[in-house]
Amino acid sequence: MRRWRRLLSLLALLSIWQAVAGYVLPSRSPDAATLLPPPTAVVGAFIDLLKNGVILSDAAASLHRIVIGFALAAAAGILAGAVMGWWPAIGRLVDPLVEFLRPIPPMAWIPLGLLWFGIGDAQNIFIIFLGAVYPIVINTYTGVRGVERTLVWAAQTLGGRRWQILCEIVLPGAFPLILTGLRIGLGVGWMALVAAELVGASSGLGFLIEDSRNLLFTERVLLGMVVIGLLGFLMDQVMRVAQRRLVAWAER
């Protein structure tokens, strides 16, 4: 029943959009119709771009970048967070640096990224990395520091060395928070990617939006936005399921 109601609100939005963009705006002026095409036009654009393969190749380009950028951010973020949390001396040293860099939005790095890497994958991946890495570092760090003290004590009196305790006790114990960090990081990375593609790419969904705007293919702009939203939603759902499956023990 609840699911029904959620669909209902979506359906209402689509009908109003169709009514306004399909009938009200064209009757006023042709320019207004260009600014907001109706959902049916977006579906038409989808069919067109599916036929010529553009939408698939752009989505693939974006996904390719997010996979690489996110994997790099996950590896670096978990490593840095674990080291900072488990060796407090290093943590105290690095923490101010992280806290200083973190508030700089990944989008603010785009001009510098363009200077360093030019247009294309490297620049986009750089921006994804910057968007995704901080939530992963912070959550891993918090998770490692939050592992129950007695679990570590017990491992120490069982003869565990420091790196053994890190692998057997601390990282698994921090895993629920690490996964939360990965989920947030993936979301931020995806947003950062689209921003990076708007200005620094010749393929990808962000590029599709920007390119279509230049050509006044507004229905393609909207299509790009919808696809970006859907893919982001799907990735988050995958992370949610992974979270539930992998850390069943953390639920009470």
């Binding site: 129950e148 007695t150 679990l151 004590w153 017990a154 009196t157 069982l158 057997e168 006790i169 698994p172 114990g173 895993f175 850390v247 023990w249 953390a250």
Partner: peptide, 14 residues
């Protein structure tokens, strides 16, 4: 060689 048992069991839940 000096084993310890804790009040809170200290068993990793995973």
């Amino acid at each position: 060689r000096r084993g310890m048992v804790f009040q809170e069991y200290a068993l990793p839940p995973w």
